[in-house]
Amino acid sequence: MRDFYGTALSNGLMLGTAQYPSPAILADAFKRSGASVATVSLRRESGQDLAGQDFWQLIRDLGVHILPNTAGCHSVKEAVTTAHMAREVFDTMWIKLEVIGEEDTLQPDIFGLVDAARILTEEGFQVFPYTTEDLVVADKLLHAGCEVLMPWGAPIGSGLGLNNIFGLRAMRAHFPDVPLVIDAGLGLPSQAAAAIEMGFDAVLLNTAVAKAGDPAAMAEAFASAVKAGQLANAADPMEPRDMAVPSTPVIGKAFLT
């Protein structure tokens, strides 16, 4: 697996920390899945006086890499402010950058995203931008200083999986050396396995686990899927073809019953 700003991760499962029934179940989901990264969103109003610190301490106690994110920010200014706050709270230069452009799809505002990414990388942040599978945008993000890209699978929280499998495959092929993470839209472990089989380095998900009836079991299922995907990718999958190819010869078989 590719490094993320010089950090090697033990596996390609990143989990969000929002919307779990309780912090105890959240901790259980991390324990059972062994996820390597926890994303955590800082809502600005609770950050001003560090009101969320009880919860943030629970996140620190998970003992995994923390990737703070700017979830819910709609402007460059908001995202940059939130990133500053995240650096202070979690003592990390990692920031998952979200600049939301549209309310119904929570689609990224790619123009604001590139601007914010440039500002933050100049300040020394290591930016993980939440983007689309658009290659031009991806290229601009890399030029802005990003060394990781996080294309969406489908709109946030939709559980639709990999909406544009051809676009994602093209992105993987186009940026062979860039660590790529499928961020958002996954609903089922099979979709995570498909992403990793395609060569994506990691998947990031939240709702699919947090809103499952048994979040810890679902987290473990995703961990198994990521592992299956990694094994399959490393094992060099066969190429699909249109016609049947029998795996045992039939011509000359003595008995056809």
Partner: peptide, 11 residues
């Protein structure tokens, strides 16, 4: 429901 203790006013 917001993780974190309350401020003085609703947002």
């Amino acid at each position: 429901m917001v993780e974190g203790h309350a401020g003085k006013h609703v947002t």
